[in-house]
Nucleic acid binder design. Sequence first.
DNA 1: TCCTCCTAGTCAGAATGATGACTAATCATA
DNA 2: TATGATTAGTCATCATTCTGACTAGGAGGA
Lengths: 197, 197
Amino acid sequence: MSLRHAVLAALLSGEYSGYQLTKAFDVGVANFWYARPQQLYLELSKLESDGLISGREVVQQSRPNKRLFMVTDAGLAELERFAAAVSKPSFIRDDLLVKVQAVDHVDVAPVIAQLDQRAAAAAAKVEILDKILRRFRGDLDEETYLRHGSPIGPYLTCLRGRLFEQEHHDWSVRAAALLRDRATRNGDPPPVSDQSR
Amino acid sequence: MSLRHAVLAALLSGEYSGYQLTKAFDVGVANFWYARPQQLYLELSKLESDGLISGREVVQQSRPNKRLFMVTDAGLAELERFAAAVSKPSFIRDDLLVKVQAVDHVDVAPVIAQLDQRAAAAAAKVEILDKILRRFRGDLDEETYLRHGSPIGPYLTCLRGRLFEQEHHDWSVRAAALLRDRATRNGDPPPVSDQSR
DNA sequence: TCCTCCTAGTCAGAATGATGACTAATCATA
DNA sequence: TATGATTAGTCATCATTCTGACTAGGAGGA
C-alpha cells in the first residue's frame, strides 16, 4: 500500500490537482514511484474519503474546473507513521533484463534493438532530471544546496533517479555494443538497429 | 505476466527444483526479478500445465523427493516470442525513496536509520554478486569474458545487478551522511543509528 | 530426547496494480 | 470549419503480486 504514501509525499510539495499529479507520475519524472492516471485519481479519492488529504474546487474559465488537494494533519501523521515503519527491500524488476538473461538461447537482434531504445530513453530522462535538479538549486552549486538548500527530500530522490537512469543508460549501451560485437563475430548478419526494422 | 518469463529464463541455465529456484529468487540474488517461494511454486505448476516446462521426479534418500524442471521447446518458443515483444519501461519503486521524499516534513531519525540499513544490505549484495561474477569468469578477466565467455546473458544481468547495488549503496551512504549533518546543525539531538534505537 | 533448522512443497484469499473504454469542454491549426 | 490535441476526470474489471498459515520428514546440536 505504497502508492498511497507516494501520493501523500508528492502532495507535500504543495497543492496539486489530480491532472497535475498524473503529469508528474506518468511521464516518469516521478523519480520515486510511478503510476497511471487512473490509479492516481482512484487513490486521491480514497485518500480524501479517509481524511488524509482535502480537496478544494477551483473554478476556471476556459478550462474544466479542477480540484486541488493538500495533505491534512491526519495525512501528515500517517506519513510520519509510514516513515518510521520498516521498508521493504528494493529490487529491480525489468522485462528487458529477463530478455537479456535469455539471450544465449533466443534471437539477439530484437534484444539489441530494445537495449538501444532503452539507452536513448534513459539519456532523455537524465536530461529531464538534470533540468529539474538545476531548477531546485537555482544559483547554488550542488555541494552548497545539499548542505543548506531546501527542500532536500525531493532533491535527494531526484538525484537518485538521475544516477539510476545514468547507470541504466551506460549499462544498456555497453550491453548492446557487446552483443552486437559477439553476433557479428559469430557470422550472423550484423544486427544494426535502424528505422528500417 | 513476467514472472512467468523470468522463471523460464532462469530455467534456461539448467534443471532446477522449485526449492532451488526459491533460493535464487528469494535471497534476491536474482538480479533480474524477485519473487517469493509461493509465487514460484504456483508459477511452476502453471508453466507445467501449459507445457512450457516439464518436470521429473527425483527420488532422494534422507531428503524429501523433489521435482526438477526444464524448459520445453514450447517454452523456448514462448521466450523467443517474449524477447521480441516490446518491453515495458523500467522504473524504480522503492518505499524508502517515498520516505526520503517526505523527509522535509517528517522525523528524519528513522529515515536515516533505514538508509544505514539499506547501505549495509546493498554492500552485502555487492559482495555476493561479485562472487557470482568471479565464478562465471573462472580465470578469464572481465574484458575477455565479455568478448568470448559463455553464458553472456546471466553475466550481463548479474553485472547490472551489481552496478545497481553499488550505486544504491553509495547514494544511501551519502544521503544518510547529509541528513545526519543537517539534523545536527539544526540543533536536534544528533541522530546516530545504533542498536539502541 | 527434545528442539530447532533445513529441505520441499501447497492452498486460499487479500492487497495492489494495470487496462480499456468513457465523458466533456476548450484551444490551436490547417 | 473540421480535426486533433490538451485539460480534467470517472468507472468497471482484469491481472498480478503478496501474505499467512499449513504439511512433513530428516539432520544436527544441547
